[in-house]
Design a protein around this nucleic acid. Structure first.
Lengths: 194, 194, 194, 194
DNA sequence: ACCTCCGGGACTCCCCGTTAGT
DNA sequence: ACTAACGGGGAGTCCCGGAGGT
């Protein structure tokens, strides 16, 4: 391998990818540096060339996980072209069984909510920005003429998405889990809402 | 100290109280046995008289935390007497600043959702039961004649409550945090919903 | 077994005998209550009928061990009848290989010196009394007319006896150990001393 | 903190210093690893980087304590230059109130005699060597032309020193304690001895 | 007087984050 | 960038002193 500064950035990114996935899977306390580095095909010792501390890594990993979700959502929304269709796509992506089950690639706004609440200010700021982005996307997909009501609706929709995914993961009953996904999806995308 | 079997049960309960609070505050990985025992005025050594392993404790602590929330909600709902009023009380309690901030006594269905998703089957079963209880309470407070729609509405309402609280905790912006609480509360209790 | 008060005193004494022996062998920290009681053909649980705490037992065991030595020395001295012969007998008993090796029945003034220094005042008082008794016996066996010089000689003799026994036990070399016993014995009983 | 091999040796030494002092004060059973490590500004967990077991530590601590005494005595003897004066210095140092009272820095040949008798062979060997060193020093300070008598005198003198210090510590009576120190000192350094 | 058990603390093992040296 | 190792600390085991209850 080369020694250029670009190579270093690549390595940095590879570690972050692994970390952001593992953090979503197992929380921010569990994954050990050695484990993360091994998963990134590196050794434990080299870690500190890239991050000044584990806390630092977790911080960046959270931001990276948030960005992941943002990118995915942008894709989803961009694929469709109607406003209402965009919302449909978003909701269905959020409440799909895949998004529920593949935690490692899931939206960090839901998956890391509890962890971010205990994390650094920087992470929480990134989280806040991400929530605002989501809200904006949802708002622009709503066709209510009243901006206040659109805002409120976006807040409720996002809350419901987040809550439904999290409960669908925690629950032990497959039927209840599916119910959460499908019924909430149906309700949120229901055309007849005020 | 006494030596009766009842005394042991009291001690057991005291440890669980401490643990269920700390687990909600800091997650299920962080709190150390020594710390929990000290908070319960005991020492690390005595722990294994009451639990066979740390995992065991966490398991019971999760269930205890879930029961705490159930009890609190039962109080809230019982205090009021009308069906619709009960829902109002519940939503306001769930979306109060107090419930957002005092994490150690908060509802575990929200607070521990991510943790339960990674926990034992027993914990997940307890979680499931708790979610069903919540849903039942909400359903019975709705006055829609169609049970299918009541069910769906309950699923959405609970999801929104859970999501809103979790995001309100993670977010760094006081205004967005308050917005989540108040706007979601307003929307969910809005009388004019279909 | 009977239940009379006398039987209880017998049991008490049996525990003390075991304890005073074990304490001399292994120090005052090592022997556990269970071990001592088992050696006295009793069980751990019955201990507190006889002693209010382990500390209490150790205290009494120290005094008992001191009394043991006193009794043995009285025998030795009484057997002989001349004054000088008494001293010879004492010194030889103290510096015999048996006294060096059978620690469990040895003179506590030597064996427990370090332990008593860290023990209760009552134990230290008993120790003091025992030392004075020893000194008196030695003084009365010396034929120097000057009481001041007899006192000094007794102090030196006792110190040498105690030191020699202790070093003879600690030392790893059999020859040095024997040398300590025999040469000190020879010097202390040397007739031609001033 | 540094990470070099030298740093580790320093830490090792620091632990030993603490341990050798505490062992002299409280015996070899009492001091707990956690206590010793805390006194060395470390935590319990790091202990096993430096010693394979508590027994190992005690063993080394005993040797260290013995070496301490040797160093101190070498100083005392070296300061004076005459042969007889050297003995005087030694005796006075050994039988000073300071040496009686400051147990933690005292000569281990006296203080740890009982403990070494129950310790490992390595410790007992170190003890033996130390005793021989002491004897040699004393012998060379005596001016008797007969080497056999010098040897015997050294054995008696060392025994008396050790015994006097130990009894002076155990005894409860200040007067008897002082008497032991001063009278034995006077007798041993008495110029008119045969 | 025995049996059982509780709470306490010590000890050991092992892993983690971090740093020095190669 | 890796290897190795240090110090921190947590989990689990064991046993002791002490206090019921049969």
């Amino acid at each position: 391998v080369g020694h250029s500064q670009e190579d270093k950035a690549v390595t940095h990114r590879r570690i972050l990818e692994v970390a952001s996935a593992r953090v979503r899977e197992a929380g921010i306390e569990k994954p050990a540096i050695g484990e993360l580095m091994k998963a990134a095909n590196l050794t434990h010792g080299g870690f500190y060339r890239h991050f000044s501390s584990r806390e630092d890594l977790v911080d960046e990993a959270i931001q990276r996980a948030l960005a992941d979700g943002a990118a995915r959502m942008a894709d989803t929304v961009a694929l469709d072209n109607g406003a209402d269709a965009a919302l449909h796509g978003l909701v269905e992506a959020y409440l799909s069984e895949q998004h529920r089950d593949e935690v490692s690639g899931s939206c960090a706004v839901a998956t890391l909510a509890s962890d971010v609440a205990r994390a650094s200010d920087r992470a929480r700021t990134a989280y806040t920005r991400q929530v605002e982005d989501y809200l904006e996307i949802i708002e622009s997909a709503l066709d209510d003429p009243d901006p206040t009501r659109r805002r409120r609706q976006a807040l409720v929709d996002l809350s419901a998405l987040v809550g439904a995914v999290l409960m669908a993961r925690a629950v032990n009953s497959p039927s209840l889990s599916r119910e959460l996904l499908t019924e909430v999806a149906a309700a949120v995308t229901e055309p007849a809402r005020p």
